[in-house]
């Protein structure tokens, strides 16, 4: 792990009490999870007990202690999405990728998460893949989307190998 990237995030932080949260969010953004060494570094530089840093990392949903896959599939399970069939979307993902919420596929391609509401309730059910919102989702549309991402990934991989 590149600690210089963590140091860059920590630069100039520490004057406000909420800086520790903001730093952890930036680390999460940079590495897509909170590596142990990054948390240690944060604790040391901001002079916050390591156990407090770990407690924050555990408490807030924004943080992941395990590396995330290359693609992040977030199924919204808000009330509007729930009554419009979000459960089926969870089933589709679980069936197709064989991983449930909070898990990553063995090949490191997909991490699946659920979110309690993304505030796009009028378009329910909603799925977010790599930051892109997909409205009025159906299991069929989701299946095709996942297959397409897999296909694009495979093509890119092939181009890389050939090059």
């Amino acid at each position: 792990m590149d600690l210089a990237r963590v140091d860059a995030i920590l630069e100039g932080r520490g004057s406000e009490p909420f800086d520790v949260m903001e730093v952890l969010q930036d680390i999460q953004e940079e590495f897509r999870y909170l590596p142990e060494d990054a948390m240690r570094q944060t604790a040391e530089i901001l002079q916050v007990p390591l156990i407090e840093v770990f407690r924050l990392a555990n408490f807030y949903k924004a943080f992941s202690l395990k590396p995330r896959g290359r693609h992040l599939i977030t199924v919204c399970t808000g009330t509007a999405c729930h009554v419009q069939g979000a459960r089926k979307l969870g089933d589709q993902v679980l069936g197709q990728l064989k991983v449930g919420p909070g898990e990553t596929t063995q090949d490191g391609a997909f991490t699946v998460e659920t979110v309690n509401c993304v505030g796009a309730c009028a378009l329910a059910p909603v799925v977010i893949i790599d930051g892109e919102y997909y409205d009025h989702m159906t299991p069929k549309k989701l299946r095709k989307l996942i297959s397409r991402i897999r296909k694009v990934d495979a093509q890119e991989e092939e181009t890389r190998t050939n090059a």
């Binding site: 009490p17 909420f18 800086d19 520790v20 949260m21 903001e22 952890l24 969010q25 916050v48 407090e52 407690r55 924050l56 408490f59 807030y60 949903k61 924004a62 943080f63 309690n116």
Partner: peptide, 23 residues
């Protein structure tokens, strides 16, 4: 300030704890 994604932080005292860099 960016919230960390905890429903309970909508409660005023929890929100302020979060602002103070606590759980």
């Amino acid at each position: 300030v960016h919230g960390g994604g905890a429903f309970v932080c909508g409660e005023s005292t929890a929100l302020m704890a979060s602002l103070e860099g606590k759980v």
